[in-house]
Structure formats: C-alpha cells, structure tokens
Computed example of a mutant assay.
Amino acid sequence: MDNILNYPTELLLLLFLIITFLQSALDKILDWKGNLSWLKSHFSKTPFKNMVPFLLGTVMVTEIVAGILCAIGLFLLIVQGDGSIALAGAILSCLALLMLLFGQRMAKDYDGARTIAIYFMPAIFLVFLLHS
C-alpha cells in the first residue's frame, strides 16, 4: 500500500499506457483486415505503400510488448517499488508513438500527428519520472 501512495503519478501514467496500447493492439488483432484496408489507402502516396502489412504488424507487436511491460512494471512498482520494467515499458511506448508519428507525418496527416504528440507527452513524462 505504501508504494501506491509513493508513486501515484507513475501508476496512473502506467495505467494510461496499458489501456492505450493493449486496446490499440487488440483492435488491430480483432480488425486486422479493416485496419489494413484503411492504412493501405492512408499510405498509398507514401514510400510505405508496399510495406503496410509489415509495418502494421511491427506497430502491433510493439504496442503489445509496451502494454505488457507497463502492466508488469505497474505490478512490480506496487509490490516491490521497482520501476525498472515500468521504465522499459514507458520507453517502448515512446518508441511506438514515434513510429506512429513518423507514419502520420509521411502521410501528411498533420491532425493525426498532433494527436500522437498529445499521447507522447504523458509517455515521455513517465520516462522522466521513472528515470529520475
């Protein structure tokens, strides 16, 4: 219980990333064809047009691993006060968001890129808190 009171911001940010990435990955798994179809259209005028299935799979795996690391990190931070796995999850979350940001910028979807930037702020703040 002490660790919940000692790390409330970190725990809440971890929950935010767990929800964000596990839900996003689950959506990609459950609606692979729909996501793939939309993304092929979205990236049709970019250098990524022939790599969409590979890139979608890469992002999905990254999101799954980031979400799982954040979940394990949440548990370990509560039980042991150890934030090392949480830090790894937060860093991988940032990398996943940077991949998504790069894709949105390549597709010239600046509104989508702005949305990714909004998600990046709490993720990088969590890296800062856990690394300090």
Score class of each variant (00 low, 15 high):
residue 123 A to K: 00
residue 68 I to H: 03
residue 50 N to E: 14
residue 103 G to F: 14
residue 93 S to C: 06
residue 34 G to P: 03
residue 55 L to S: 01
residue 11 L to I: 03
residue 108 K to D: 11
residue 69 L to I: 05
residue 64 I to K: 01
residue 26 L to M: 15
residue 52 V to K: 00
residue 82 D to S: 15
residue 110 Y to N: 09
residue 12 L to F: 10
residue 85 I to E: 06
residue 113 A to W: 00
residue 89 G to E: 04
residue 90 A to E: 04
residue 43 F to Q: 12
residue 71 A to D: 08
residue 120 F to V: 06
residue 46 T to D: 01
residue 38 W to I: 14
residue 27 D to E: 14
residue 19 I to Y: 05
residue 58 T to C: 14
residue 101 L to C: 07
residue 1 M to V: 08
residue 131 H to V: 12
residue 52 V to I: 11
residue 44 S to G: 02
residue 38 W to D: 13
residue 16 F to E: 02
residue 19 I to Q: 08
residue 10 E to M: 07
residue 109 D to Y: 00
residue 37 S to Q: 10
residue 106 M to E: 12
residue 55 L to E: 10
residue 80 Q to I: 13
residue 17 L to V: 02
residue 70 C to F: 04
residue 89 G to Q: 01
residue 60 M to Y: 06
residue 130 L to P: 08
residue 27 D to L: 15
residue 41 S to N: 12
residue 16 F to I: 06
residue 3 N to I: 07
residue 116 I to D: 07
residue 19 I to L: 09
residue 113 A to D: 06
residue 26 L to A: 15
residue 50 N to R: 15
residue 12 L to V: 14
residue 13 L to M: 00
residue 92 L to H: 09
residue 56 L to T: 04
residue 54 F to G: 15
residue 70 C to S: 07
residue 69 L to H: 04
residue 95 L to Y: 02
residue 60 M to Q: 08
residue 99 M to F: 09
residue 20 T to L: 13
residue 75 F to G: 09
residue 33 K to V: 06
residue 5 L to E: 12
residue 99 M to I: 11
residue 50 N to I: 06
residue 30 L to Q: 07
residue 113 A to E: 00
residue 95 L to E: 11
residue 94 C to Q: 08
residue 104 Q to P: 12
residue 7 Y to L: 04
residue 61 V to T: 08
residue 44 S to P: 03
residue 26 L to K: 13
residue 2 D to Y: 05
residue 84 S to Q: 10
residue 88 A to M: 08
residue 40 K to R: 10
residue 125 F to L: 13
residue 29 I to D: 02
residue 12 L to E: 04
residue 12 L to T: 13
residue 130 L to W: 09
residue 120 F to A: 07
residue 45 K to I: 04
residue 75 F to D: 13
residue 63 E to A: 07
residue 28 K to N: 10
residue 53 P to Y: 00
residue 33 K to H: 10
residue 11 L to H: 05
residue 81 G to V: 05
residue 22 L to V: 04
residue 86 A to K: 02
